[in-house]
């Protein structure tokens, strides 16, 4: 094919990809508007705008500013983080079963939180989350170190996956033993485990924001290297890739992103499992597009599920984790059945 024929086609692909990106951004924006206005108390759009720009201290203003806004912000952050982390994780392990929890973040966070409640007497959400975050980071560093020494010349996908599963199973067992011995910790643990972004407050958003931002930057830096790696390690090496460095950056990004999201919101790691499979048919296997698509789909999905959870069982709410499982997973199964899955 001549160069003149290739150029317009490439241009068309890029235009299509930008179009999809804009559509996904728009869907996140719609989800944000829904999340701010809909709930056990519906707030008209005009009032919501008023509360943001010129608050007067009315009831609606309070609901919007102290409850809905932090909740929405946390939903966007967690969705972005888990979507991107999931795509990175599946790319690095080349395993469609890999979710961000594979590095041990979920069980690391759970164990640290439960241990902090029982052994250190932690009692407020803000302190649990610090411990959860620390636990997530320590667990994933341990998994990564183990995968590193287990593989030959850097962590290989299989050893990483196995090391993650082993460490997670160990931590989950210890957590189960602790909550079986302490009923108060069990009560906190079961609600965290269900996965929720409700009643977290603005301070929690500020707590996780730096981790998510750092993780997103690392993820974008990692994308071209990951593309080369997905051609196989030999090809990547001959293209001049520093493979251990690329792997380390990727895993660090996954740790920061999923650790922050899971510590704040509970067991939602499977968002990261499902979202990349939804994004891949739109983006193809190019990680420079797959990562942003996954992040945006994650955010839109998480917020939409949260809004549905608020209205579906009045006067109570359904945890976002449950709604996501009940809506997102069947949709995922439908997609898997309908098209031939894009292989990693």
């Amino acid at each position: 094919m001549s160069a003149t024929a290739v150029a317009p086609r490439l241009l068309g692909v890029r235009r299509r990809r930008l179009g999809v990106l804009l559509a996904l951004l728009a869907s996140v924006a719609v989800a944000v508007v829904l999340s701010v206005t809909i709930g056990s108390k519906s707030v008209p759009l005009a009032d919501a705008w008023h509360a943001l720009t010129a608050p007067t201290g009315s009831e609606n203003d309070l609901v919007i500013r102290s409850l809905r806004l932090p909740r929405t912000a946390l939903g966007v952050l967690a969705g972005l983080a888990l979507g991107v982390a999931g795509a990175l994780m599946q790319g690095h392990t080349r395993n469609p079963l890999a979710d961000p929890g594979l590095l041990g973040v979920t069980q690391g966070a759970a164990f640290a939180m439960v241990a902090s409640i029982i052994l250190l007497g932690a009692s407020t959400l803000l302190t649990y989350i610090w411990y959860g975050l620390a636990g997530a980071l320590v667990a994933s560093v341990a998994v990564f170190a183990l995968g590193m020494v287990g593989g030959r010349g850097g962590p290989t996908p299989v050893t990483l996956a196995l090391a993650g599963t082993a460490v997670s199973a160990l931590l989950y067992a210890l957590t189960s033993a602790l909550v079986l011995l302490d009923e108060q910790a069990m009560d906190v643990f079961r609600f965290w485990q269900a996965g929720s972004i409700a009643s977290r407050g603005a301070d929690v958003v500020w707590q996780v924001l730096p981790f998510v931002v750092a993780g997103l930057v690392l993820a974008l830096v990692n994308a071209p290297g990951l593309n080369a790696l997905s051609l196989g390690e030999d090809v990547a090496r001959s293209l001049g890739q520093n493979i251990p460095l690329t792997r380390t950056i990727g895993i660090a990004a996954v740790t920061l992103l999923s650790g922050a999201a899971v510590a704040a919101c509970g067991s939602l790691a499977f968002v990261g499992l499902i979202v990349p499979h939804l994004a891949r048919p739109l983006s193809g296997t190019d990680h420079r597009w797959l990562l942003p698509y996954s992040g945006l789909i994650g955010a839109a999905l998480l917020l939409t599920a949260d809004v549905i959870g608020r209205v579906v069982a009045p006067p109570g709410e359904l945890e976002v984790g449950v709604v996501l499982a009940l809506l997102g997973a069947p949709f995922f199964v439908f997609l898997v059945r309908r098209r031939k899955p894009v292989r990693l």
Binding site: A194, G195, S267, F270, G321, V322, V333, R337
Partner: peptide
């Protein structure tokens, strides 16, 4: 792939 989707539903229903 179908298995992980279904497992996600069951696990979260269990959590709930």
């Amino acid at each position: 792939l179908v298995g992980i989707g279904v497992a996600a539903v069951f696990t979260n229903v269990k959590f709930w």
